[in-house]
């Protein structure tokens, strides 16, 4: 630890201290820690039994994909932190020194790599090398993309999109217009096999639905301290998605693709769930913890879907109910 603090410099010291304090705050009560450990053990055991039934090529791809996803996510997060330090941090001079930033990134990747190795060792120990290679590839890709965007002075981060575009995504009319797009796409792709068409349309609808899940922390925080109930904050953010979901589901339904309509409704409900828990967590915690807990919640729900799909909706409903109760208690409160 001391070596990494020396090697990673002040930037590493700053963010490692911040991460430790955030983790302490999230798991402040011993009940939370025991529950998290129990859930982790349960997930690992169930994933291990599921994965062991799979063929080697499938498991290899999964290990690689998990590694890439983790490497990419960690890389993106660290690049965002370096950018924050350079513009708004107290040690900007370090964040503007490329050598110190490289040291910070290398030192900070050690913990997520160790976590990836530990997880893969527990679930599929024979494929650790694939997962680590995937992590390296994902992290490198994120680093190159950030370097490119810095050199060319362009931004690929969605949060950098203009407030006007983000406001449009909360507009039900825009949602309804976007909802018609996949239907045009279906009309254009009629030559495809039904299975391929279904996969393509599902992917299009998922990407479009995710566009409508943008939630801005300052808006949530402002509405909460202005006395808006959590439900009305959710309704304010969900209008674009609702317009999108309603139109696309109706068009597909009347186009006689009932199976696809059910898939669309499921995707839109999942996107709505994502918006709702992010808003509720933003009402309860400040942004960093809200984002962290949203990620953990999504991972837990995906785990539940893989392990016992029928239980997932019950778990989601219970989660929303519990978070809504806690978020309601924070209405009007400034701190």
């Amino acid at each position: 630890m001391r070596f990494f603090r020396g090697f990673g410099g002040r930037l590493y010291k700053h963010d490692s201290q911040l991460a430790i304090n955030l983790a302490r705050s999230v798991f402040a009560r011993w009940q939370d820690r025991i529950l998290a450990l129990a859930l982790l053990a349960l997930c690992v055991a169930l994933l291990r039994s599921r994965v062991s039934e799979m063929q080697l090529p499938t498991r290899t791809w999964i290990a690689l994909a998990v590694g890439i996803a983790l490497g990419w996510s960690a890389g993106q997060l660290l690049n965002a932190r370096a950018k924050f330090h350079a513009s708004d941090g107290v040690i900007a001079s370090d964040a503007l020194n490329p050598k110190l930033v490289r040291h910070f990134l290398i030192a900070f990747h050690v913990a997520p790599i160790a976590l990836t190795i530990a997880l893969v060792l527990m679930v599929m120990p024979d494929l650790v090398l694939f997962a680590v290679s995937g992590y390296g590839a994902g992290a490198y890709l994120a680093y190159r993309l950030a370097a490119f965007s810095h050199e060319k002075n362009v931004s690929f981060r969605w949060s950098a999109a203009s407030p006007a575009i983000r406001a449009l995504l909360r507009n039900p009319v825009i949602g309804a217009i976007a909802g018609a797009l996949p239907v045009f796409a279906i009309a254009l792709q009629q030559g495809l096999e039904p299975r391929a068409l279904q996969i393509l349309v599902t992917a299009e609808i998922t990407i479009l639905a995710l566009l409508f899940t943008t939630v801005e922390y300052p808006i949530v925080a402002f509405m909460r301290v202005s006395g808006k109930a959590p439900l009305s904050i959710i309704l304010y953010h969900i209008k674009g998605l609702a317009g999108f979901g309603a139109v696309v589901a109706c068009l597909i339904w009347f186009g006689d693709s009932t199976g696809l309509a059910v898939t669309v409704v499921a995707i839109v409900l999942a996107a709505g769930f994502l918006i709702a828990i992010r808003i509720l967590l933003y009402c309860i915690h400040f942004k960093a913890i809200g984002d962290l807990l949203t990620g953990l919640t999504i991972a837990a729900i995906m785990g539940a879907v893989v392990i016992a799909a029928p239980l997932a909706p019950v778990l989601m409903a219970l989660l929303v109910w519990n978070l809504h109760r806690r978020a309601s208690a924070r209405t009007w409160l400034i701190t």
Binding site: H14, Q17, L18, N21, L22, S25, D88, V90, A92, F286
Partner: peptide
Amino acid sequence: FAPPPEMLPDAL
């Protein structure tokens, strides 16, 4: 340089 006060990290 004094950073914007609202940007100081809450968890430090």
